[in-house]
Computed example of a mutant assay.
Amino acid sequence: MGTDKTSVNNQLDAAYQRVWGAIVSHKLLPGTRLKEDDLCDTFDISRGNVRKLLQQLAHHHLVTLIPNSGAFVARPSREEALEVFKTRRLVELEMVRELARKCSAQDRQMLEKHVHREHEAHSSGDKSLRIRLSGEFHLLIGALAERPVLYQFLHEIISRASLIVALYQRSHSANGRSAGDRACSEHHDLIDAIAAHRVEQAVAVMEQHLQELENQLDLDPPLEQHVDLRKVFA
């Protein structure tokens, strides 16, 4: 019985990652409808498990569930995107300030190990993994800062922000550098300032980093309503 439950959970995790990957690669654009029957056939899972999958995607703000209409890839508005990044700044600047005051050698090692994984994902061209790891880097700063209430807020915000970045981030910043190159470089700068306990510098680097992420967003992308999910996940 336990093995069957584990197998189902593994199937749902795999399906979740494939949907996330399709969103990041823009195979599924904002507003695309996700039909239950197509998802059943595509992932070879029951309708009940498809609904669990959609609930999980909705919980992480990747999908919007509309009663009597269905499930659609989330379509964050310009206003929502700007509000998310405004809230990120309020929470993350406080978190980085706290960590910069007390960062240990072990904390630095954990941050550097994580950024190394980001570099590997970027070098391999795995955009989906790179965006996920970038969000997790910010969560790691929050965890190491040991501010549990703020961390709960941050976890919610990062989930929304990662979707916004996946949907709307331009591939290159204004100076021609790739978004992945710039993010990894700025994360290294953050680690250096945090580990040296240069509190105000760390806060300034984080603020500039978040502003650059926001500047990379193109909030007027094309929208797709109808796609063949079997072809998307073939």
Rank of each mutant, 00 (worst) to 15 (best):
H119E: 08
D107R: 03
A58Q: 07
R51I: 01
E80R: 15
Q56K: 15
W20S: 09
A105G: 10
S25R: 12
A105D: 13
L90D: 07
R47C: 06
R89P: 02
R89G: 08
R88L: 15
E83Y: 01
A74F: 05
S25P: 01
A22K: 01
E79L: 11
L57M: 09
L65I: 15
R78H: 13
K52R: 15
E80F: 01
V50M: 05
Q56C: 04
E83M: 08
N49A: 04
V91M: 09
I66L: 07
R47M: 08
V50W: 01
D44K: 13
K86Q: 14
F72C: 03
R75D: 10
R97G: 13
T42E: 03
D107A: 04
P67K: 12
L111R: 00
C103H: 07
K86E: 13
A105Y: 11
A105M: 12
K35Q: 09
K113F: 10
K52M: 07
L111M: 10
Q17C: 00
V115Q: 09
P67S: 04
E94D: 13
H119Y: 09
L29C: 05
C40K: 15
H116V: 07
Y16I: 08
L29K: 14
F72D: 00
Q55P: 00
H59E: 12
R108W: 06
E79F: 08
A71C: 03
V19D: 02
L82V: 12
S46M: 06
D107F: 05
L57G: 02
A58W: 00
D38I: 12
P30N: 00
G70C: 08
R88W: 08
L90G: 00
E118C: 08
G48M: 07
R33A: 09
K113V: 12
F43N: 06
R97H: 11
M110C: 04
E120H: 05
H116L: 12
V96S: 11
S46W: 09
M95E: 09
L93F: 00
G21C: 04
M110D: 08
H26V: 07
T32D: 01
M110S: 11
T64M: 13
V73D: 01
Y16S: 05
G31C: 08
H116G: 05
Q109K: 15
V96L: 12
H114P: 13
A22T: 06
T87A: 12
R89V: 13
Q109V: 14
Q17I: 08
H61C: 11
V115D: 05
S46Y: 00
L99A: 12
E118P: 02
L82K: 11
R101P: 00
R117E: 09
V91H: 10
